[in-house]
Amino acid sequence: MSEAIRTDTAPRPVGAYPHARRVGDLLFLSGIGPRTPGSDAIPGNEYFADGRLRRYDIAAQTHSVFANVRAVLEASGARWEDLVDVTVYLTDIARDFKAYNAIWAEHFPDIDTAPCRTTLGITALPTPIAIELKCVASLAPRKD
């Protein structure tokens, strides 16, 4: 048995899928990017007059994607600290990894409680974004 999670506090999925799906004590988040909820604007993107992407700001997009992941976690009854595995997709890993990694360290300062992570360099994502996260969280009872 599974439960689909949708929320208006995160950007709409770009396809026919939920923001997340709960299966038992695990929460699987669909790929989440940095688009702004409601407007679908992409923080840090600048465009030429003809609509082509001129430049982007990986720091702005990283902060935004983390906020969107938090929104889906909260809508699912989970917290940032419940993340157990994160796959990161970067469209220019050579250029963006250092800046992304520094922001990651700000959000996960303790390696003993940080989620596992895999970072991949890819050629493109479905919208003009430079980063996307695929996450798994644990919804098992907490021992706070």
Score class of each variant (00 low, 15 high):
residue 9 T to F: 01
residue 10 A to V: 06
residue 10 A to C: 06
residue 11 P to K: 09
residue 13 P to E: 10
residue 13 P to Q: 08
residue 14 V to A: 14
residue 15 G to E: 07
residue 16 A to D: 15
residue 16 A to C: 04
residue 17 Y to H: 12
residue 19 H to Y: 11
residue 19 H to S: 05
residue 19 H to E: 08
residue 21 R to H: 09
residue 22 R to C: 02
residue 23 V to F: 13
residue 23 V to T: 10
residue 24 G to H: 11
residue 25 D to F: 12
residue 26 L to W: 07
residue 26 L to F: 06
residue 26 L to Q: 13
residue 27 L to G: 09
residue 27 L to P: 09
residue 27 L to S: 11
residue 27 L to K: 12
residue 30 S to Y: 07
residue 32 I to R: 05
residue 32 I to H: 08
residue 32 I to G: 02
residue 33 G to A: 07
residue 34 P to V: 01
residue 36 T to G: 10
residue 36 T to H: 04
residue 37 P to N: 01
residue 37 P to S: 06
residue 38 G to Y: 07
residue 38 G to I: 11
residue 39 S to W: 03
residue 39 S to L: 11
residue 40 D to V: 09
residue 41 A to Q: 15
residue 42 I to Q: 14
residue 42 I to S: 14
residue 43 P to W: 11
residue 44 G to E: 08
residue 44 G to L: 10
residue 45 N to K: 04
residue 46 E to N: 08
residue 48 F to T: 12
residue 48 F to P: 07
residue 49 A to G: 06
residue 50 D to C: 09
residue 52 R to K: 10
residue 53 L to W: 11
residue 53 L to Y: 06
residue 53 L to D: 10
residue 57 D to M: 02
residue 57 D to Y: 11
residue 58 I to F: 00
residue 58 I to H: 00
residue 59 A to H: 02
residue 59 A to Q: 06
residue 59 A to P: 03
residue 60 A to H: 13
residue 60 A to L: 15
residue 61 Q to C: 06
residue 62 T to N: 09
residue 63 H to T: 10
residue 64 S to I: 06
residue 65 V to G: 02
residue 66 F to P: 08
residue 68 N to D: 02
residue 68 N to K: 04
residue 69 V to K: 04
residue 70 R to A: 09
residue 70 R to M: 12
residue 70 R to F: 02
residue 71 A to E: 01
residue 72 V to D: 03
residue 73 L to F: 08
residue 73 L to V: 03
residue 74 E to K: 15
residue 74 E to T: 14
residue 74 E to M: 07
residue 74 E to W: 06
residue 74 E to C: 07
residue 75 A to F: 04
residue 77 G to D: 10
residue 79 R to M: 08
residue 79 R to N: 08
residue 80 W to D: 05
residue 80 W to E: 01
residue 81 E to A: 14
residue 81 E to L: 12
residue 81 E to G: 12
residue 83 L to A: 10
residue 83 L to Y: 13
residue 84 V to A: 02
residue 85 D to G: 00
residue 88 V to R: 10
residue 88 V to Y: 03
residue 88 V to K: 03
residue 89 Y to S: 08
residue 90 L to I: 11
residue 91 T to Y: 00
residue 91 T to M: 01
residue 93 I to V: 15
residue 94 A to T: 12
residue 94 A to I: 03
residue 94 A to K: 13
residue 95 R to S: 13
residue 96 D to W: 14
residue 100 Y to T: 08
residue 101 N to D: 15
residue 102 A to P: 01
residue 102 A to S: 09
residue 103 I to A: 10
residue 104 W to Y: 12
residue 105 A to D: 11
residue 106 E to A: 05
residue 106 E to M: 08
residue 106 E to P: 10
residue 107 H to Q: 13
residue 108 F to A: 02
residue 108 F to I: 07
residue 109 P to S: 10
residue 110 D to N: 15
residue 110 D to G: 03
residue 110 D to P: 06
residue 111 I to M: 05
residue 112 D to H: 13
residue 112 D to K: 08
residue 113 T to G: 02
residue 113 T to Y: 01
residue 114 A to C: 00
residue 115 P to I: 11
residue 117 R to N: 00
residue 118 T to G: 04
residue 118 T to C: 05
residue 119 T to S: 14
residue 120 L to V: 05
residue 122 I to R: 02
residue 122 I to S: 07
residue 126 P to L: 01
residue 126 P to I: 07
residue 127 T to S: 14
residue 127 T to F: 06
